[in-house]
């Protein structure tokens, strides 16, 4: 049971100090999670901390390989509404 950081990570450091298991490794080209240490914050927090502050949709995957923050989840605009939202914003 562990989360994974993938290449869309922008190395912003936000997750690193939050990890209760010290599982986040500063690395190039992007940060990594030590799978042996990661507990997905079980027992420490209701939600995994790294995925709760990560600003990039899709940069952190769960144990099943699915994005914890899927497309649209952080902007608040689901992909199917993107075109409509864009039209509204362009009209400003």
């Amino acid at each position: 049971m562990a989360l994974t950081i993938i290449e869309s990570c922008v190395n912003c450091w936000a997750c690193e100090p939050l990890c209760p298991s010290k599982a986040i490794i500063e690395a190039k080209p992007h940060f990594l999670i030590d799978a042996k240490k990661c507990s997905e914050c079980d027992g420490d927090f209701a939600e995994p901390q790294c995925a709760s502050i990560c600003p990039i949709e899709g940069a952190i995957l769960d144990a099943a390989g699915l994005a914890v923050n899927p497309p649209g989840s952080l902007t608040g605009i689901p992909p199917e509404r993107l075109a409509a939202a864009q039209a509204e914003i362009r009209a400003r």
Binding site: C12, A14, E16, I53
Partner: peptide, 15 residues
């Protein structure tokens, strides 16, 4: 200070 605790729509964290 690299980390941020909020997201603003005018900011991109790739810097």
């Amino acid at each position: 200070a690299p980390a941020c605790n909020i997201q603003c729509h005018y900011c991109n964290r790739k810097y």
